[in-house]
Design a protein around this nucleic acid. Structure first.
Ligand SMILES: [Mn+2]
Ligand SMILES: [Mn+2]
Ligand SMILES: [Zn+2]
Ligand SMILES: [Zn+2]
Lengths: 148, 148
DNA sequence: ACAGAAATGGAAACCGTTATCATTAAGGAG
DNA sequence: CTCCTTAATGATAACGGTTTCCATTTCTGT
């Protein structure tokens, strides 16, 4: 199935060019279900394109986050982690974070109850504090099966 | 109402000494409802005790977190923030975080519904992923009244 | 092919935090 | 109170993730 990858349009919409580094980074993000750091992505990209620099990784990730194509998370291990947003597949979700080994588990169980509750909470809090809520983050911290 | 401050006992329980820097830091944390960074605390302490170094601020905050006297939060602005745990007064709670100016608002509305739901979620997730959950964090992101 | 603008890569700067180590001082024994 | 042991401290340097800078390259419309 050739043809331009699905993101070409997205780039052009905002006047951005479709470059090798950007494609390489999106390829890596597409091919994993993990929550990669900038350096993880750099190393993965480096195997096929050793000329691509770490600066470009950071710049591109910033761009992708601003474009709404990638989530940026901070799980408290001192570096940001990135996750591709695949429409209809990997949208908003919450996390279990192992404080032992740093493992991250996505979960969607109860997501609907959580989201329903949060809708209510958002409404009340917005009015009470005159605060325009745009998103929320939820994470459970603990020990994964290997670390207990 | 003189007498040793309420935390002297806590320190001695774990074989820690009650020092000027520790008291100064706890005094600052006691006297604010804000979510101070290490540097904020350093500057506040510095006014009265210019000899106290930033290293000691970090070390003491680590200690206080380990002792369960202080919460450490990461609101995504690249520095940790600290908040005194006042028993029966400022216990577990959630936050509104303004992405414009960084303002943090504590809230406890709906806290009970949230905690009830999270109890359920924790139970299901614990079993499903064999994950021992010890805590959770919830924050709503958006724009505060001044930043909209 | 050309020109103008956007994107890139390497080096250095940045900034919050941690490690090192010589010096100070808390607090128990006498 | 004085002495002694050892925890605690503070100045400095190191660390690690990220950002800035700027000269060079690459893309894209003409
Ligand atoms: Mn995820
Ligand atoms: Mn708070
Ligand atoms: Zn683990
Ligand atoms: Zn604000």
């Amino acid at each position: 199935m050739p043809g331009p990858p699905w993101w070409s349009g997205k780039f052009r919409e905002c006047g951005c060019r479709v470059t090798i580094p950007r494609q390489a980074i999106l390829d890596i993000l597409t091919g994993t279900s993990e929550h990669l750091s900038a350096e993880d992505i750099y190393m993965a990209v480096h195997k096929e394109y050793p000329a691509i620099g770490l600066t470009t990784i950071y710049r591109t990730l910033d761009l992708l986050v601003r474009m709404g194509m990638v989530f940026r998370f901070d799980f408290g291990d001192g570096r940001n982690r990135y996750e591709l947003i695949e429409e209809g597949k990997k949208e908003h979700h919450h996390h279990l974070v192992c404080t032992g080994c740093g493992r991250i588990i996505d979960y969607t169980d109860f997501i609907e109850d959580e989201v329903r509750l949060f809708k209510q909470v958002e409404e009340v809090l917005s009015k009470k504090h005159n605060f325009e809520i745009t998103s929320h983050q939820v994470q459970f911290l603990g020990q994964c099966s290997k670390c207990q």
